[in-house]
Structure formats: C-alpha cells, structure tokens
C-alpha cells in the first residue's frame, strides 16, 4: 500500500501539457464551426424539403382536378358537331373572302 501511495504521490506531481494549446484550441473551434455549419445546412435542407413538399402537395391537388376536368370535357365533345362547325366556318370564310374580292374589282 505504501508503494501505491508513493506512485500516486509521484504521479500527482507530473504536469501534463498539450503540445500547442493555441493550435489545439483553434483546431477544436474549427471543428465546432464545421459541426455548426453542417447542422445549419441540415436544418435548412429539412426546412426546404418541408416547404417543397407542402408546395407540391398544394399544386398537385388542383392539377389533378384540372386534368380530370379537361379529360371529362374532351370525352364529352361531339366530334361530328365539331366537324360540321369547322366546315360551316370555312365555307363562311370562303364566301366572305369571295365577296371582298368582287367588291374590290367593282371599285376599280
């Protein structure tokens, strides 16, 4: 036991010192800053992801509504009626054009 006491007493007198305290402090602070920066970045990314998913959720619901409305509208269209309307409108345009042409020749 006396020997143990002597070793402990001798060990108490040993003064351990860091090699370069300033460099150690600087390096530790750099690591802290790095850790802080990565934590902030993760936080920002998480917030960004949340905002993005909220925006997507908001956008997706009207888009599906709009697309389903368009599909419903397109499926309800009568193609025969469209064709006849197109023919009529083309015919009317041709008649009007012909009338305008004959008018210009009259005025000359």
């Amino acid at each position: 036991m006396k020997q143990i006491d002597a070793i402990i007493r001798a060990e108490k007198e040993v003064d351990y010192r860091q090699r370069d305290k300033q460099l150690f402090s600087f390096y530790t602070l750099t690591l802290i800053a790095q850790e802080n920066a990565s934590r902030n970045l993760k936080k920002m990314l998480a917030i960004g992801l949340c905002l993005f998913s909220i925006c997507v959720a908001f956008l997706i619901s009207p888009i599906t509504q709009i697309t389903s409305d368009i599909i419903a509208y397109l499926s309800a269209i009568d193609t025969d009626a469209i064709l006849t309307m197109t023919l009529i409108s083309y015919a009317a345009t041709a008649i009007i054009m012909a009338l305008f042409k004959s008018r210009t020749t009259i005025f000359r």
Binding site: K21, S25, L29
Partner: peptide
C-alpha cells in the same frame, strides 16, 4: 463559438 476558445485553453491541459 469564439468565446469558447478561452474555456478550451483553460481546461486543455487538465483534460489532456
């Protein structure tokens, strides 16, 4: 964190 540097220097030898 820069104020923490003083604390690091104060206890660096003790922890080492």
């Amino acid at each position: 964190s820069h104020h923490y540097g003083t604390l690091i220097q104060r206890y660096a030898d003790y922890l080492f």
